[in-house]
């Protein structure tokens, strides 16, 4: 029976980010959430457990305040959580997150069969962690997955690629990054939330890990996207309609 690891990131819920009058971003009253596609990863792990048995470990790297995120994840069905926490982990880069996850999985999770990650996170959407983690662990990685199942010793997945759908298989252990189409994440019930904190949580600190590589990215600035409204009036005569269609074409609204 498979041991499945579902990785998730506890991110700022973008719905709470406000736009200041001067175009700056106001983070003063934000709340956090499990990154959207990671909810799909957790849901899929729990679904696979439902049909194949085994167990699900929810794993996250974050700041110590992310305990709420750990409970949120556990309320969605995993059996236990692995919480890699440090106050310095608030601005990790994808390469660092992947290295930390790899370190923990290699050293502490003896036998795992499948790792599920969201295709990208709601905040950065760099799509790096899954692929890098697989590379560190030297296991196959299947990305853009909209359907997945375990069949004997292998994972079979449907990838949504530009030209259509690609069906691939890989030997276990393997890593799969999922798209939101893969399932509809549950809304945990009251009891699920209240019993989440009774599930086991393995907490790992920075000091328990191999030294972390330095940061490679530099944030130069951050501003809100600007939306300019353009108001142009068109008449109803044939010439005006042609002009209207032309305007839409120039703006690439139609082709």
């Amino acid at each position: 029976m498979p041991t499945i690891i579902a990785c998730f990131k506890w991110v700022i819920d973008e719905a709470y980010i406000r736009r200041g009058f001067s175009g700056d971003l106001d983070f003063s009253s934000v709340d956090y959430k499990i990154s959207d596609y990671d909810r799909n990863a957790i849901e899929e792990a729990v679904r696979l457990k439902g049909s194949h048995g085994g167990s699900v470990i929810a794993m996250t790297v974050g700041t110590p305040e992310a305990t709420k995120g750990v409970k949120d994840a556990l309320s969605r069905g995993p059996d236990q959580a692995c919480f890699i926490a440090d106050a310095d982990f608030n601005k990790l880069e994808p390469s660092q997150t992947a290295a930390i996850l790899a370190d923990v999985i290699r050293s502490r999770i003896v036998n795992y069969d499948l790792i599920l990650c969201g295709e990208g996170s709601s905040d950065l959407y760099a799509q790096q962690v899954g692929a890098r983690l697989a590379e560190h662990l030297e296991i196959p990685c299947i990305s853009f997955v909209q359907k997945v199942d375990i069949d004997g010793g292998q994972v079979v997945a449907e990838r949504r690629v530009e030209e259509g759908i690609e069906i691939v298989a890989a030997p276990l252990p393997a890593l799969v990054t999922v798209l939101p189409e893969i399932n509809v994440p549950r809304i945990p019930g009251v009891k699920d939330t209240l019993t989440a904190s009774k599930k086991p949580v393995m907490t790992i600190r920075k000091g328990d890990l191999a030294p972390l590589g330095g940061a490679r990215l530099q944030t130069v600035g951050m501003t809100a996207a600007r939306m300019d409204r353009i108001c142009e009036k068109f008449g109803t005569e044939a010439a005006e309609i042609t002009r209207f269609v032309d305007a839409l074409r120039k703006k690439a609204v139609i082709s």
Binding site: D31, D72, S75, I187, V190, S197
Partner: peptide, 17 residues
């Protein structure tokens, strides 16, 4: 509590959906 905050969020999602 964290549970109360999560339950509020879950109910919000439920209500919106």
């Amino acid at each position: 509590t964290e549970e109360q905050e999560l339950i509020r969020k879950n109910m919000r999602e439920f209500a919106e959906k």
